[in-house]
Design a protein around this nucleic acid. Structure first.
Lengths: 218, 218
DNA sequence: CTTGACAACGAACATTCGTTTGAGTATACT
DNA sequence: AGTATACTCAAACGAATGTTCGTTGTCAAG
């Protein structure tokens, strides 16, 4: 008998899957049997139908039969899932800058690959201004993903709020060092223009820990 | 005349939009005209069609006419927009390493925020191995987004294939410098262990230009 | 009152699209 | 050889689905 490993895909099936994914990506709805056939060079609809069955049997897609375009990707394989996190705006890594203290009413959001986020927790995104963290491979213009948490470990990169004398508070992006009753907020830039800040522990409020970076060129 | 503010929705249109959103959420494909009609209590398909036109004119949906279920939400609000790019595996920034030369048959893919990609072009993703580009703020383990293109400008970060003497080819991530009949592939790491490679222009094949970086901590 | 834009209806129509059928080829196993 | 499995093809059928058209009703402006 011509047995085949149950989860392996024939080149044709692979091409079909690739096309389906691309098609949905572009159109937001799945292709028809004939569209798939035309794309991968299959003249007979029954052949497409046959291979679609194979793809379903092997767990790559889920079919909704007798319905046009009744077909979806079985997202177990590929983390196609995306989550949106609220975008709070810019954070000046060099100089403190206010961050919206508001709870949830943020209208901007960025989509991030779901596998960039732990399954639990609250997250937000900020665009980095300045180059104080350049040695940490975080550049001006980068978008950082932050997990909301009230404290972080020493050496972790964190978004912290500094309670200013004048009651104003600003947020900054730094390496966090616990010095007991004080904390040191250390930039990652050899330029002497960037100096560590040491402040009493009660004067800082940790907003979260940086868990990811997204950068676009140009 | 019974003029109506152009962006306002009739109750019926609101119901339709609501249903469409819910339907897509549950099925991953859009409803048909008749399904919409049944859901909101419209007996005539032409009425659904008419209101669908209205919804499109008001900018809530985008129709792809003459195609079954050819309908998508124009959701500017929820940036559900994500695109998937094929994941080719790892690229050793330090040492050359083969990259799948195959055209399209890749089964792994990563989801990226749509706004990280230009609207046109072919893209792929690689995971960076090694630290040869550390000064370019690209670390070991980072995922780079690459736009497929046959040539790049000098100083751009590129994925290039080097045709080895022994007919083997490998891919590497470097800064690209055009020297006329030769090209220089320069790492971004001060460590003398990382040295520029200068090879005849005909020995290299540019695969694409790095357009983005995604990094996860921990 | 008449007119014209807006909204809705139902029926007929034309495609699109999934399904079924019957057949053909290749390979492996007995 | 004979048979079973996997894969492919072309053609035709019928259901699903978008489109068109003639008609009706409402409402506000002229």
């Amino acid at each position: 008998m011509a047995r085949r490993a149950s989860k392996e895909l024939r080149p044709r099936q692979k091409a079909m899957l690739e096309f389906i994914r691309k098609f949905i990506d572009e159109n937001d709805y799945p292709p028809t049997i004939r569209e798939i056939g035309a794309a991968v060079g299959i003249s007979s609809t029954s052949v497409v139908n046959y291979n679609l069955d194979q793809l379903e049997r092997k767990g790559f897609i889920i079919r909704n039969r007798e319905v046009s375009r009744g077909l979806r990707l079985a997202d177990t394989q590929f983390g196609r899932r995306v989550r949106t996190v609220p975008f709070y705006g810019e954070i000046a890594a060099g100089e403190p800058l206010p961050v919206p203290d508001d709870p949830q009413l943020v209208d901007e959001a960025v989509a991030v690959p779901a596998d960039m986020l732990p399954s639990t927790g609250d997250f937000f995104a900020l665009k980095v201004k300045g180059q104080s963290m350049i040695d940490a491979l975080v550049d001006d213009g980068d978008v950082i993903l932050v997990r909301s948490q009230p404290q972080v470990e020493t050496k972790e990169m964190a978004v912290v709020e500094i309670i200013d004398e004048s009651n104003e508070s600003g947020a900054t992006l730094k390496y966090f060092y616990n010095l007991g009753d004080k904390v040191e907020l250390r930039p990652a830039n050899p330029d002497p223009a960037y100096q560590p800040i040491i402040v009493p522990a009660e004067k800082v409020r940790v907003r979260g820990k940086v868990i990811g970076v997204i950068r676009r060129y140009q």
